[in-house]
Write a protein that binds this DNA or RNA. Structure first.
Length: 206
DNA sequence: CGCATTTGACCCGCGC
DNA sequence: GCGCGGGTCAAATGCG
């Protein structure tokens, strides 16, 4: 697998450090929908250039092998322009793919991604350990766990019931290991003093 | 042959 | 106390 350079890496491992703990609550996708106005908007920090997203629809994306490099995946999803961490910019934000996400204490992140494939290669190796159909959605929900030994990170993937072209992904936990090919970013919002870290701060072998 | 995925069963917490 | 929904486990199967 390999693969480098996709923002998904960052997303998968995004850690959110409030200046002081205790401000996040445990929010999930349901919260996203009911609390959109007050939600923390990662789009401020992660920017997907959607643009052509719809262009890939109608194409046999699903025929592709379930595991592809992030770069490939990205291009299949958006048609090319998926990407970019705006680690310094605060200019344009949110262009569609990334709708809204919520960071909660305990490092739980939920966000919607416009994608036909649910298995986005975010740089980590995920092992599926469960599937479940949920009440509110006709679509099954899949449960993945980081296959790296000792890594507590879990992820939940399901399709948006309203709009099947979107995939709801929920990451839970912080990777305690590095992932090959991942680019790590650190951003500090000088205004709030918060640190936004995409990646893992725990070097292997330490 | 080894590993990841699949799928049903089991377990737990919550609400009624 | 019971039922429901959600989450995880684990044995079996398939694939590389």
């Amino acid at each position: 697998m390999a693969a480098v350079g996709a923002p998904l890496h960052a997303l998968a491992n995004m850690a959110y450090f409030p200046s002081q703990t205790g401000q996040g609550s445990d929010l999930t996708y349901d919260d996203l929908q009911s609390d959109q106005s007050a939600a923390f908007d990662l789009s401020d920090y992660i920017l997907f250039e959607e643009g052509l997203a719809p262009a890939s629809f109608g194409q046999p994306v699903n025929a592709v092998s379930p595991m592809v490099d992030a770069d490939q995946t990205a291009s299949q999803i958006s048609g090319s322009n998926l990407t970019t961490i705006s680690s310094s910019s605060s200019s344009t934000r949110r262009s569609g793919v990334l709708e809204r996400l919520r960071v909660a204490e305990g490092s739980r992140i939920a966000f919607r991604t416009k994608s036909e494939v649910e298995i986005l290669n975010d740089g980590f190796k995920w092992r599926k350990y469960g599937k479940k159909s949920v009440k509110n959605s006709p679509n099954p929900r899949n449960y993945y766990r980081c296959s790296t030994e000792g890594c507590p990170v879990k992820k939940r993937v399901e399709r948006d019931k309203e709009d099947p072209s979107y995939v709801i992904t929920t990451y839970e936990g912080i990777h305690n290991h590095m992932s090959p090919g991942v680019v790590y970013y650190t951003t500090k919002d000088t205004a709030s003093g918060r640190f936004y870290v995409a990646g893992c701060e725990l070097p292997p072998g330490s």
